[in-house]
Amino acid sequence: MLKVENVTKMFGGLAAVSDVSVEFEAGRINAIIGPNGAGKSTFFNLISGLHQPTSGRILLDGVDVTSLPSDQVARLGVGRTFQTTNLFEQATVLDNLIVGHRLRTKSGLWDVLINSKRLQREEKAARDKAMEALEFVGLTSVAGQLITDITQEERKRVAFALALATDPKIVLLDEPAAGVNPEETVGFAALMRKMVDEKGLTVCLIEHKMDMIMSLADKIMVLDHGEKIAEGTPEEVRNNPVVIEAYLGGDEDAAA
């Protein structure tokens, strides 16, 4: 599904991501873990096209997306969330989500001016898509609330819904469970599992919560200082001496 070949990203003279190759299979939950500053978010930015790799190739279903800009990558079916999602605080949850389907629509300025049939049709489709995504993440009840009035956990779910509204094939989730309590974390794990089981999506996430990763992921890739140091099932990764070294050797707290 997603194939990354020898990707390197240099910032100035420093390699944020260094010669990483990995393949994520369709319909699986893939986790990327590693200490802070290991290049995890940069790796996501490379896949989603926000940054262009210095060298290497990225293939999505066999299509080379290495040098495509981010909006085109999104159109090809890569949805993503960010660690923090800026939303329109004074608008409702639903209003914030409608734009998620924009990339599947074509209406332009002229359609707005004459209120064309196409615009009406597409707006309805976008609204339906937003409602569907809200229902999927379990937020139908707050559809009419202002963003500023919903909880932190609900915000995170809205960010999920926004990514889902783009009709992605693969979703990249950057620390989906950061800043939520343990019970809510369980809820997010269930939601990710549901994305795979019910929607057939491929999930790729960055996360620090090891308990969650170990029970949830089908495959884990470990990054350290921009390099891939291990890859495998949770069991394999847990027992890998290099990984243990990376986590225990550094100052970072693996459980953080």
């Binding site: 989603s48 096209g49 926000l50 800009p69 981010s70 909006d71 085109q72 999104a74 159109r75 949805g79 993503r80 960010f82 999602t85 800026n86 939303l87 329109f88 608008a91 734009v99 998620g100 924009r102 990339l103 926004l162 990514a163 783009t166």
Partner: peptide
């Protein structure tokens, strides 16, 4: 409005 919310987020939505 999505662009106002953030360039990167907007791009990730295919804008």
């Amino acid at each position: 409005i999505a662009i106002r919310n953030g360039d990167e987020l907007a791009q990730s939505l295919g804008i």
